[in-house]
């Protein structure tokens, strides 16, 4: 089976990598690029642990053929923090106790980030819709909702101050 070289933007940097036609993007990220923050859970699009932001939208990396990444703009959990500080979502997850075992957390943060990138004043309903595809069996979601609301508030405050996140 012939590998092909594809090119895409990953966490802001354009790169090239050889992928096979039957490979999934999740395997490329984890096994070839060693970006293991994106978790493999069910492998069937049912748990959300592998959520990444693909061309601005939250998607399950386990269901994206690697070939489809050609020309795409992809963000993973490794690209979320700034050079000097955590992203407000990451900080809020810590501050609000929204992390327990932590396995779902990268996917949860990517789903929440895809929402907050477009909407910095989401309703509770919108937050629930955004993280509804991410299964957490520790926290019961209340702390996660609070963390996303808290991060949204921080992002709004930062926007008022003219900050650059």
């Amino acid at each position: 089976m012939a590998s092909q070289i594809i090119s895409f933007r990953l966490n802001g940097e354009v790169l090239e990598i050889a992928v096979s036609p039957s490979e999934m993007l999740l395997d490329v990220l984890r096994e070839k690029m060693h970006l293991t923050g994106t978790k493999r859970g069910c492998g069937k699009g049912e748990c959300g642990a592998c959520t990444i932001i693909f061309n601005g939208k939250a998607m399950n990396a386990c269901l994206i053929p690697a070939m489809r990444a050609q020309g795409a703009d992809i963000q993973t959990i490794e690209g979320v923090a700034g050079p000097d500080a955590l992203h407000p979502l990451q900080q809020s997850f810590i501050d609000k106790g929204a992390v327990q075992c932590g396995f779902c957390t990268p996917g949860m943060i990517m789903s929440a980030k895809a929402l907050l990138d477009k909407n910095k004043s989401p309703s509770k309903e919108e937050i629930r819709e955004a993280v509804g595809g991410n299964i957490c069996r520790c926290t019961g979601y209340i702390k996660i909702e609070e963390a996303v609301e808290d991060a949204a508030q921080a992002l709004r405050a930062n926007a008022v101050q003219g900050g650059d996140l």
């Binding site: 699009g45 959300g48 693909f54 939250a58 399950n60 955004a130």
Partner: peptide
């Protein structure tokens, strides 16, 4: 349908 991730795909 499914979840937002699935609906996006």
């Amino acid at each position: 349908v499914g979840s937002l991730q699935i609906r996006n795909m």
